[in-house]
Design a protein around this nucleic acid. Structure first.
Lengths: 159, 159
DNA sequence: CCCAGGTGGTTCAAATTCGAACCACGACTT
DNA sequence: AAGTCGTGGTTCGAATTTGAACCACCTGGG
């Protein structure tokens, strides 16, 4: 363990800025969705993903981008079902599977929420940056995302 | 509300990448801290901030970067107090105030956790990027951070 | 001095989150 | 066809989070 790695001030500051931005951004988004449509961010994500997929998706696919755990997804879909925004139907080709789908109400609620959401993301994330900055930011995120996707669990190398 | 703003595919994809990266990064960090030092990320943040301030800080200051709510901070400091990593003492100049401070145990636990933490952040965030990318990323985050700090609650512009 | 108003922290109930345990079913073996 | 293993989802309990209500104390004005 000799001479462990340290981060420079700049690196540490950047990391902290990332955490702060991430946290603040989430806070704002959450607030907007709550006020405009009575949805939590995770719930909005579920609706948005379903919509992007044409209106229905298997639970596993929904869990895809791992914004939440498996059980968390069950919970949120349950909530959305209670309020009538999505429904559940079992998968014909695989009896284990469950398909979540947007109801009419779900579509319309999503449509309502989406405008304000897009506006806010645009304002906070896009408008704040120059086109060059945005391009660079986008590239960086792609890099980080694929890197993170790669090594799921680094683990200590053997004993 | 005529013709609401929409995001381009690229913009939407970037936003989603941001969410995914943020979530994954947090997951990894959380796991490392838990395994190496039995700390949650919020707890580590508290210890790190205290250390950066020389070992003691008022609750309000700790809440500063708003990684958590006021009550959340109370809770976490409470947990850390139970495990003996921090202590509470009342502020002499203002009887309302409470000062949290690192205990000896707190310092040493932090030291242990810090190495692994720095290594992981270095690996996931720094090493993944070219120096140019990192510079751009850093600049973008600064911009976003100050922008977010600025308009706390945008609100709809009058009626 | 006493009161109104604001700030600093804690406490409370309710909602959400997570991982572990669990059940049901499909896929592959023999 | 029965047996085993892996996958898809849900359920359970424990920990955490949040906003609102609350108490104690400071500050400024009568």
């Amino acid at each position: 363990m000799a001479d462990p790695r340290w981060l420079t001030d700049r690196q540490l500051k950047t990391w902290q800025a990332f955490l702060a931005v991430s946290s603040q951004l989430n806070r704002r988004i959450e607030q907007q969705l709550r006020d405009d449509a009575g949805l939590s961010h995770p719930q909005y994500e579920v609706l948005a993903r379903l919509a992007a997929a044409g209106g229905a998706l298997r639970m596993t696919e929904l869990a895809g981008a791992a914004l939440t755990s498996k059980s968390g997804l069950s919970y949120q879909v349950g909530q959305l079902e209670k309020t009538g925004l999505v429904g559940r139907r079992s998968c014909t080709s695989d009896d284990r599977g469950v398909i979540a789908f947007l109801t009419e109400l779900g579509w319309s609620q999503l449509r309502e929420a989406a405008a304000g959401h897009a506006a806010l993301v645009g304002e906070l994330l896009i408008d704040a940056l120059t086109p060059e900055q945005f391009g660079a930011f986008s590239a960086v995120l792609d890099t980080l995302e694929s890197r993170l996707r790669g090594a799921e669990r680094p683990q200590r190398t053997a004993v």
